[in-house]
C-alpha cells in the first residue's frame, strides 16, 4: 500500500481535528499575548505534491519569517509558524509597544529578534501542548528556531523525512487573521508529522491505520 492510499476520509478528519485543537489553542495564546482578537480559520488537511505545499504558502520564492521546531517523543514531526515579514513587524510592535520599525530593523536588532522568537515559542508551545493533551502522547518541542528566507527553502526542510517514502505530503494547515481584516492572511501553521508518526497519532485517538 502506498503512502497516500493508507489514508481514508476518517483519517484525514482526525488530522484535521488535531490541527483544529493545536492551532485553536495557539491562536488563543497569541490573542492574549497581543491583546488583540485573532481568528482562526477551519484547518485544512490535504494530500498534495511538494510543489503544491509551497503554493499554499504563497509560492516557493515568497519571503517569510518562520519559527520552526522539531517535535520529539512519541510522534515526531516538524512544525512551522509562518508570517509575512510585514505581519511579523506588526506583531513585534504590538508586543513591545513600538511603531516605527521596518523589516530590516527587525532582523538586525537582537531585541526585536528575541521578541519574535518569544512570540514563536509561546504560540508553537501552545499548539504542541494541546496536541499532547488531546492525544495523551508525550511530545517534546525542540528549541524553536527563527529564520527569514524563501518559503520553499524553509518548508522543504519539513518535507525531508516524508520525501524518503512519498512524493506527496500531508499538510495540516491553519490560517490566522486579525478580526475585522479578513482579506489579509496573517499567519500559517504547518504541521508535518514524520511518516512513522501517523500510526501513533491514529492509535492515540482509537483508530487503526489498517482497517
Amino acid at each position: 500500500m502506498s503512502f497516500k492510499d493508507q489514508f481514508t476520509h476518517m483519517h484525514l478528519d482526525v488530522l484535521k481535528e488535531i490541527g483544529n485543537i493545536g492551532a485553536g489553542n495557539a491562536t488563543t495564546s497569541l490573542s492574549k499575548l497581543l491583546n488583540r482578537k485573532i481568528d482562526m480559520q477551519v484547518p485544512s488537511v490535504q494530500l498534495i505534491e511538494f510543489d503544491e505545499v509551497m503554493e499554499l504558502a504563497g509560492g516557493a520564492e515568497t519571503e517569510v519569517i518562520s519559527i520552526m521546531l522539531r517535535i520529539e517523543g512519541d510522534a515526531p514531526g516538524s512544525m512551522f509558524f509562518i508570517l509575512s515579514p510585514l505581519q511579523a513587524v506588526k506583531f513585534v510592535n504590538q508586543l513591545i509597544g513600538q511603531t516605527s520599525d521596518s523589516v530590516s530593523q527587525l532582523l538586525d536588532s537582537e531585541f526585536h529578534r528575541s521578541a519574535l522568537q518569544e512570540l514563536g515559542n509561546i504560540v508553537t508551545g501552545a499548539y504542541l501542548s494541546s496536541l499532547s493533551d488531546f492525544t495523551k502522547l508525550d511530545l517534546y518541542p525542540s528549541v524553536p528556531l527563527l529564520a527569514m528566507d524563501m518559503v520553499g527553502a524553509i518548508l522543504s526542510h519539513g518535507l525531508i523525512e516524508l520525501s524518503q517514502i512519498s512524493d506527496q505530503a500531508i499538510v495540516i494547515e491553519t490560517l490566522l487573521q486579525e478580526e475585522g481584516n479578513e482579506e489579509e492572511i496573517k499567519g500559517h501553521f504547518f504541521l508535518f508529522p514524520d511518516p512513522i508518526s501517523y500510526d501513533v497519532l491514529f492509535q492515540s485517538v482509537g483508530i487503526s491505520n489498517h482497517e
Binding site: 510543489d51 509551497m54 522543504s156
Partner: peptide, 23 residues
C-alpha cells in the same frame, strides 16, 4: 523546475528553480 523535478531547455528558454534550501 519544481521540487524533485527535472527539465531540459535550449535558447531562448531559460531554466529556473525557486526556493532551494537544503535541496
Amino acid at each position: 523546475v519544481g521540487i524533485a523535478d527535472i527539465n531540459v531547455a535550449c535558447p531562448p528558454s531559460i531554466l529556473r528553480t525557486s526556493g532551494l534550501g537544503s535541496c
